[in-house]
Design a protein around this nucleic acid. Structure first.
Length: 275
DNA sequence: AACCAGGCTAAAA
DNA sequence: TTTTAGCATGGT
């Protein structure tokens, strides 16, 4: 199944820090585990990607997952033409990034794990937790073995000591607490998709271990509230070093999260981060 | 081999 | 209200 789109770059998406289970497996080729499924993607041309899936699965799952009905080109073009010099370069450099519509529970746990960790380390932890608490599967198309991300039920019943053995550090009890909040219905992720970004953040922050930054990431990447604006150490660098702390996300009201991704991806490139 | 990482909580100031 | 110590551990 081939998809033609001017703003769809699998390498940029894989390195944009929003998904942790997309990995390089060959020249211009990546594997991805999402929604209990496995696919491989290959960048054939700048604007052409091949996905190892049926047309039916594409229309049913992956078209939505990669947010392919949304026109990122419109935003990129306007940022490139706009008055902000940093965003001129950032949008040009990351024009193939899209905001994925990932599973909310996976994002909830993944970004709890992410705190005070670098991206390679986050990936390692998520792979381990999937191997131990997820299901072992074999992809029918490629024959690849993979492990699904664990369910809320499984993690809610996990023992703290067992999670600690997976080297998750002090985050073990945060993970169990978040999973329990989902199981009890205290935290209804589907409701949070429908309500406002502000309400979602407020609700997410009632969970111990979720602060403002992690809540914004879950809102942006798991609930697709694209007005969310997560500020981590890299974004702090952008806001202070480039904008002298006078950048106003409200200038891009309604899609500040997309702008934030171009900033995050570009500043890491400027600093020469190799991952 | 220090230093940093898509931070948060709780205590102190 | 704002600032700071402590956190558990891997990657660079």
């Amino acid at each position: 199944m081939k998809i033609k789109n001017k703003n769809f770059d699998i390498k940029q998406i894989a390195e944009s820090g929003q998904c942790f289970r997309m990995n390089p497996i060959g020249p211009n080729r990546y594997s991805l585990v999402a929604f209990d499924r496995y696919i491989e993607l290959e960048q054939l041309e700048d604007d052409l990607i091949e996905i190892t899936c049926s047309e039916n699965d594409y229309n049913k799952i992956w078209k939505d997952y990669f947010d392919l009905d949304y026109d990122y080109g419109y935003i990129v073009d306007n940022l490139i033409k706009g008055p902000d010099e940093f965003l001129n370069k950032a949008a040009e450099y990351g024009r193939g990034i899209r905001i994925l519509r990932q599973d909310p529970f996976e994002m909830l746990i993944s970004f709890i794990i992410s705190q005070n960790k670098n991206i390679p380390s986050i990936k390692t932890c998520i792979e381990r937790i999937s191997q131990v608490y997820g299901k072992r599967c074999i992809d029918g198309t490629t024959g690849s073995i993979y492990y699904t991300f664990p369910s809320a039920k499984v993690l809610a019943e996990a023992k703290k000591e067992d999670l600690r053995a997976l080297k998750l550090g002090y985050r073990d009890e945060y993970i169990i607490g978040a999973a329990k909040a989902v199981i009890s219905g205290e935290l209804n992720l589907e409701d949070l998709k429908v309500c406002s970004h502000e309400e979602a953040v407020k609700s997410l922050k009632t969970v111990k271990g979720i602060g403002d930054k992690v809540a914004n990431c879950i809102s942006l990447f798991g609930l697709h509230h694209i007005e969310a604006f997560p500020v981590d150490v890299w974004m702090k660098r952008v806001l202070s070093e480039i904008y002298d702390n006078k950048f106003d996300p409200n200038s891009y009201q309604g899609y500040a999260g997309i702008v934030q991704q171009y900033m995050f991806y570009y500043i890491r490139h400027v600093y020469g981060v190799s991952n």
